[in-house]
Simulated scan of single mutants.
Amino acid sequence: MNVILQFYEAFRKLDAEAMAECYHPDVTFEDPAFGVLKGEHACNMWRMLCKTQTGKDFLVVFSGIEEDEEKGKAHWEAHYTFSQTGRRVHNIIEASFLLKDGKIIQHTDHFPLYRWARQAMGFSGFLIGWSGFFKKKLNAKTVGLLAKFEASLD
Rank of each mutant, 00 (worst) to 15 (best):
W46V: 05
Y23V: 06
F82H: 01
L145P: 02
Q119M: 14
G132N: 12
K141C: 10
F7V: 10
K73N: 15
H41G: 09
V143D: 08
I128N: 05
P32K: 12
L59H: 06
A33K: 02
V60A: 14
Y8G: 07
K137R: 08
I105M: 04
A42Y: 05
S96M: 14
A16E: 04
K100L: 04
T52I: 13
T52N: 13
M45Y: 15
I105L: 04
F126P: 06
A151N: 14
D101Q: 04
K103E: 05
K148M: 10
F11P: 01
K148V: 13
L153C: 13
I92C: 01
L113P: 03
Y80P: 02
H24V: 00
K71A: 03
I93V: 13
K71S: 00
I104T: 04
A117E: 15
E40T: 11
R47Y: 03
G35N: 01
F7H: 11
A18E: 00
K51M: 09
R88C: 08
N91L: 02
S96P: 03
L5N: 12
T81N: 09
Y80V: 14
R115P: 03
P32D: 09
R87Q: 00
V60N: 15
E66Q: 02
G35L: 01
L98F: 08
T28V: 11
D68M: 00
I93D: 01
L37V: 00
G64Q: 08
E70F: 04
G39N: 13
I65C: 07
E40Q: 11
M45R: 15
L146C: 09
F34W: 12
F7R: 05
H41W: 05
L113I: 01
A117Y: 15
G72Y: 09
H75G: 08
L138P: 12
Q53K: 10
G132D: 12
E94P: 07
W116V: 08
A151K: 15
H107Y: 11
Q106G: 07
F34V: 04
K137Q: 13
L98V: 12
E150W: 09
A120P: 12
A20C: 00
K13L: 13
F134T: 06
L49C: 11
E94M: 08
R88Y: 10
L98D: 02
R115L: 10
A140R: 12
T54D: 13
A120E: 09
H110R: 00
F133A: 05
K135L: 15
K100Y: 11
F134L: 06
K13A: 06
V89D: 08
K100F: 06
T142C: 14
L49M: 12
F126V: 08
